[in-house]
Design a protein around this nucleic acid. Structure first.
Lengths: 337, 337
DNA sequence: GTGAAAGCGCTAACAC
DNA sequence: GTGTTAGCGCTTTCAC
């Protein structure tokens, strides 16, 4: 917090080049109203003096911002790494700089991060909200008319926000329909935070698909649990230990499914033979973990790219009602079903 | 890049509270030289007007910075997610804001990111350099006397830099010694970027341990390859298909080892029985992938925390020669050996 | 304890 | 084309 610095200023560059500050400013911003001679002199002086453009001062003066705030929940989940990659790639191209914050599912942390980002004059915010976020959290942002785009998870509120995500209902239906087609009747849905929009939508899809197949929904087969490998490991154990256990399991996401596979391996049950498992997300490990995890591709990188792109448009002045961009999921069949 | 905003300024707060701008400024910074009455009036006005502190303007004027630049190579690798977590946790506590950049092993991207961060007046930089980074890349930074700390990978150059990492030589020795103790004589070392300091140090440890055990180093058993699951899958195939194949394999990192395990599973070879595998890093999946990957714990989260802490101290004015903080690795024995 | 005035490094009008 | 002037929102002397 206390670093002193002695930068070369544009003033010094201008003096060294024998032009005015205004002309030098035009040169660094690539304006056309400068003679070639002046431009060259300025460039030479910049190089010679080791000039570094001060975006902070420039942004302050011009009342712009080329930074955006990115808030995600769990950087350990490959799903979010991929989301982040998609966002970064898209934003880099447009010349934005990204301030990153991770909430690890803490609402307090999320509020704090949002405030910090406002204080840093971000031009917009890309938020993958903590499950159970109160609408106020994000509604207070709309006062400051700074664009905000939600990714992967919604916030349930009257006031709509721009949102980019996967069709969770459809994804869950695909998974369950696939399991039904394989002949299963007792299909469980395990893991995940029941207060997240994604969980609720997937549960909806799960129930819909069962009803369409004429299979009654058994609440004992819906078991939430921590969204971690360890969580998957334990949740599948619980669901299998109850009387009349399921013969197929649809997991909230791949991380949970992978934990579940570990448990099955331990107790000597072969997925794809004795039991069927389907995950959600299609993270890299899904294809690399024997015998290959059947799953629903959720295209996080694309979601990130779309969300970043939408935010960029909003920052650039795009008006109009909140957009809801919903991508279609794909069923990926591998060895576990 | 074009967002207009109409913030409430400190000026407006001051007027509303009936005090001067200077007094209001003291209040927001928590200075003691303010009467309680004035403080309260200012706080009330702030709340009433919805004031947001402008750190950008404040930093400009006071010539400080509370942002730091963080540059890592591969966000997909859980090792780096953990590094990032350690860094973030440590930096959050000190009130820094983090600007993130990912290079994906592109030297050009790295140079670009470093420039961008300088332009954003970061107070310091935390860099996990791209393998094969030229010393100039980072030496030019020392001109601007902005603190920089390297994490996980060094840059070989005369000018030393602050560095925090694991003892790679020792880690590799632990791995190989373990394999030797298990009775192996033909031990391969596969995967990784041979132009990274980490690879070179691990190779050194590998060779040292073999020599100490009286086993000659066979160059055919050292095979570099992409640092991905897919890379591990292919590199182990190559090394096993050659005449006189190894009976044990030390992998550059866990990602590669996990890819290798996938291949072994496919061809029906049981790790821990027919062949021994050791990884490096001890990422979460190592313990969750049956039969459990033996590995060397590299403590990325701790490294991140130490690096962040050192950078904070440098920013706060800590002088003295470059520090080299080297953590000790631990051998973790699981099912694959 | 409080306020007036100067200025961080830059851009934006507007003359010339 | 180029320079002059004002000022973004804040902090910092330095009087009072």
């Amino acid at each position: 917090m206390v670093k002193k610095r002695s930068r070369v200023t544009l003033q010094q560059v201008a003096e060294h080049a024998g032009v005015s500050r205004a002309t030098a400013s035009k040169v660094v911003r690539g304006s056309s109203n400068v003679s070639d001679a002046a431009r060259e002199k300025v460039f030479n002086s910049m190089k010679e003096l080791g000039y570094i453009y001060d975006r902070v001062a420039a942004n302050l003066r011009s009342n712009r911002s080329n930074t955006i705030g990115l808030i995600i929940t769990d950087i350990r989940n490959p799903y979010f790494s991929d989301l982040l990659i998609g966002i970064h790639e898209s934003l880099d191209k447009e010349g934005y700089t990204v301030i990153l914050g991770t909430t690890f599912d803490s609402v307090e942390k999320q509020d704090l991060l949002l405030s910090t980002m406002l204080e840093h004059r971000v031009g917009g915010i890309l938020l993958s909200p903590v499950p159970g976020s109160s609408p106020e959290t994000v509604e207070r942002l709309s006062q400051f008319d700074i664009p905000i785009v939600l990714a992967a998870r919604r916030i349930t509120t009257d006031h709509q926000f721009d949102y980019v995500g996967i069709d969770n209902v459809e994804g869950a239906k695909l998974a369950v329909q696939h399991l039904v087609a394989k002949g299963h009747q007792r299909i469980a849905f395990i893991g995940g935070p029941s207060n997240s929009s994604a969980w609720q939508e997937r549960t909806e899809g799960y129930c819909l698909a069962l009803l369409e197949a004429g299979i009654p929904v058994d609440e004992a087969l819906i078991k939430e649990g921590p969204t971690t490998r360890q969580g998957g490991y334990e949740t599948i154990r619980k669901v299998l230990e109850q009387p009349d256990p399921p013969t197929a399991i649809f997991c909230y996401n791949d991380i949970i499914a992978l934990g579940a596979l570990t448990y099955l391996d331990e107790i000597g049950i072969k997925p794809g033979q004795h039991i069927s498992i389907v995950g959600f997300d299609d993270i890299q490990e899904a294809s690399m973990t024997p015998p290959g995890l059947s799953t629903i591709a959720a295209h996080p990188q694309q979601i990130g790219a779309y969300a970043a792109n939408l935010l960029h448009q909003r920052i650039s002045g795009l008006a109009g009602p909140p957009q809801q961009i919903i991508l279609s999921p794909d069923l990926i069949v591998r060895g576990t079903t």
